[in-house]
Design a protein around this nucleic acid. Structure first.
Lengths: 223, 223
DNA sequence: GTCTATACTTGGATAGAC
DNA sequence: GTCTATCCAAGTATAGAC
């Protein structure tokens, strides 16, 4: 299929030729991970989808796992932007839950969480993958943590638990719900749960916030 | 290692000889799944641990997956009993959380949840495994559902959400927390979360229960 | 009925062609 | 620098020995 040699050589203009291969491999890897899971996303399978020779995986990414991680990074970058955009308009607990539900549904529908969860599961299988995946999970925990802190951090019942711990729980729940949903092909159950959470969140939003007046005495604390 | 022929033939007394092989294979499979994950728990690896020929896996269990499922059933049976025992003494929300924390810590320490989670993840990889795993998850959801209903079902805030949905969320959270914990080798983070939940649960326990007096009018409903 | 030796398939990775 | 033909290891499963 691929014409041999770079498409157009003129100075490195017109897409560096190799980069095109890299891109198609990354895209194919995402799809393979989503459709066939970690074990099914072999160099052969990915190359087949990308329409190129399996060995190119090793030339461009060193190892199959290297490509897997590149695929994970690719979806992470894409989703992070979307998450941030959705979260930007949120100001209360109910809004936070609704926003979460929205991105969750998107991720489920497009199989993005599937890519993440299969990689997390794979880390459990392949020890040296552990740190790599852990490092790629951390930003999501931070995202969740910041979202919690910024939007519901001052609500009494929430305030008693560090936002970072809530963020961790949220990521864990995401992962678990997706795994179970993809297991019995029932996405609705998870979405129903988000609905319940929204109701509870609306109760939280009605709690009176602690007064800030007294804090001025001890100002200058937040560096 | 294994002496050829049955240990003692007398009438089928003294362990049926083949059953010994089956047992050792199941145990080895549990350990392999726990230590090496689904992909690492190959027929070769399991047989090596069991000290027997890889082909015995296929003779006794038909397929590697068959043995994996047998291993899953084995730990499930063992854990179910323990769970039930721990839950028996529970009468309120805080107790329920504490009991959950206890069995969670046990499962983590012995790697039992790891076996479950790697199989759930594998189901995502191997489509025909899906229904089998789903069927084996269902009892846990029921266990959680019943525990919720029996111990905290009448508490106002809880009552507004069907116990079955809460049970599902609990199972999902279990799974997610374990995956993340085994990912960055930090079990403490999950346990800290249980501590927070216990505090919140104690608040739930202080809510006044709805009066039951009026229900007598419409009795005869529960068949 | 129980187990061993072995065939067959697929996958990761490299040596060398263009 | 980019890609193809090929090697070797590991996996599942069976045919046949005991």
């Amino acid at each position: 299929m691929a014409t041999s040699g770079p498409e157009r050589v003129l100075d490195g203009q017109r897409e560096p030729a190799a980069q095109k291969t890299r891109r198609s491999l990354v895209m194919a890897a995402v799809e393979a991970l989503r459709d066939k899971g970690f074990a099914g996303a072999s160099a052969r399978e990915i190359a087949r989808r990308a329409g190129c020779n399996p060995a190119l995986v090793f030339y461009h990414f060193g190892t199959v796992t290297g490509l897997h991680l590149a695929a994970l990074d690719h979806v992470a970058a894409e989703r992070k932007e979307r998450y941030q955009a959705v979260l930007d308009g949120v100001t209360n607990a109910q809004g936070l839950v609704r926003a979460s539900q929205e991105v969750f549904a998107e991720d489920m529908g497009r199989g993005y969480v599937a890519v993440l969860s299969t990689m997390v599961a794979a880390a459990h299988t392949t020890p040296e993958l552990g740190p790599e995946i852990a490092a790629r999970i951390a930003p999501w925990r931070e995202l969740a943590t910041n979202a919690v802190r910024d939007t519901v951090g001052r609500i009494p019942l929430v305030r008693s638990t560090p936002a970072e711990e809530i963020g961790h729980a949220v990521v864990a729940l995401y992962l678990g719900l997706e795994m179970l949903a993809s297991l019995d092909g029932d996405q609705a159950r998870a979405l129903r749960l988000f609905g319940r959470a929204a109701t509870l969140a609306s109760l939280l939003d009605r709690l009176p916030l602690p007064s800030r007046r007294r804090r001025d005495r001890t100002a200058k604390r937040r560096g």
